[in-house]
Simulated assay, not measured.
Amino acid sequence: HLYKATQGDVKTLDSADMIFYNGVHLEGKMTGIFEMMSKDKPTIAVTEAFKENQLRKVSASEHDPHVWFDVKLWIVAAEAVEKELIANDPDHEAEFRENYEEYALQLEELDKYVQYEINKIPKDQRVLVTAHDAFGYYGQSYGLDVRGLQGINTLSEYGSKDVTDMRNYLVKNKIKAIFIESSVPRKAIEAVIQGAGKQGHNVEIGGELFSDAMGEKGTEEGTYIGMVRHNTDTIVRALK
């Protein structure tokens, strides 16, 4: 949400034949660069293919951009990529279709895996508490009550009342684990844990989740499928 493109980034984008990005205002300050690039080359927000009712509304004028946490929606995004590739490079249509169909099958299996694993968590413990509200689509699709200390944007600030309210919620509902995120400082979560401890309720850090970023290149978590599996396994292990 906060990232500002460097000259090197602009040069890399300028050298591309096509550009795909998420959209729904996820990219913040980079949106203007994409608009500029669209004058010279195909520049596509994959979420443009989504219907209004597929997007999670968080205010009268704002949608949640973290669509990739519903694997079924990411299949829609992958199909949008396939169609744009075919439209701009029709000579390779057969290859694009084959690759999409193969990947869509992998994503369908992933979707089933996530639901199967989440179902292992006792129903009264299916509460996912994180630093910012990145997992709304995940909770909506797979049956978790998701609560973030901050809003959907890491630009938003949390205050002492947010910490207190979250602490009280954890104590009242006997929630035993909350999660830090790879792209958000852990200070706020640690404040909630300390507050709950003073109330006599022990809360543990259930692990680190990937929210607005994947893992390092070359690792399992550095792929979309690996990242979703890692998050799911971490959540289930802590809450089960």
Rank of each mutant, 00 (worst) to 15 (best):
H1V: 05
K4Q: 14
A5G: 11
G8K: 14
T12V: 13
D14C: 09
K29A: 15
T31I: 12
T31H: 05
T31F: 07
F34P: 05
K41C: 01
P42G: 04
E48R: 14
A49D: 09
F50K: 04
F50P: 01
E52N: 12
N53D: 14
Q54G: 01
A60K: 15
A60L: 13
E62L: 08
H63L: 10
D64E: 04
D64K: 10
V67R: 01
W68A: 03
V71A: 13
V71N: 06
V71T: 07
L73R: 05
W74I: 01
K83N: 11
L85Q: 08
I86N: 03
N88I: 03
P90H: 00
P90D: 04
D91E: 13
D91W: 03
A94V: 07
F96Q: 05
N99C: 05
Y100Q: 09
E101W: 08
E102A: 15
A104L: 02
L105Q: 13
L105I: 01
L107S: 05
E109L: 08
I118E: 09
L128A: 10
S141D: 12
Y142Q: 09
G143Q: 14
V146W: 07
G148N: 00
I152A: 12
I152S: 13
N153M: 10
L155W: 00
L155D: 14
S156A: 10
E157T: 05
E157M: 02
S160R: 09
K161L: 11
K161H: 10
D165H: 06
Y169G: 05
N173K: 13
N173H: 15
I175E: 01
K176A: 02
F179L: 07
F179Q: 04
S182K: 00
P185Q: 08
K187R: 14
I189Y: 00
A191H: 08
A196N: 03
Q199P: 02
G200E: 02
G200C: 04
H201T: 06
V203R: 04
E204L: 03
I205D: 00
I205E: 06
E208L: 02
E216V: 01
E220H: 12
Y224E: 03
Y224L: 03
I225A: 02
I225Q: 02
M227H: 07
V228K: 14
N231F: 01
T232R: 04
D233Q: 14
I235Q: 13
V236K: 10
R237L: 00
K240S: 14
K240I: 07
K240Q: 15
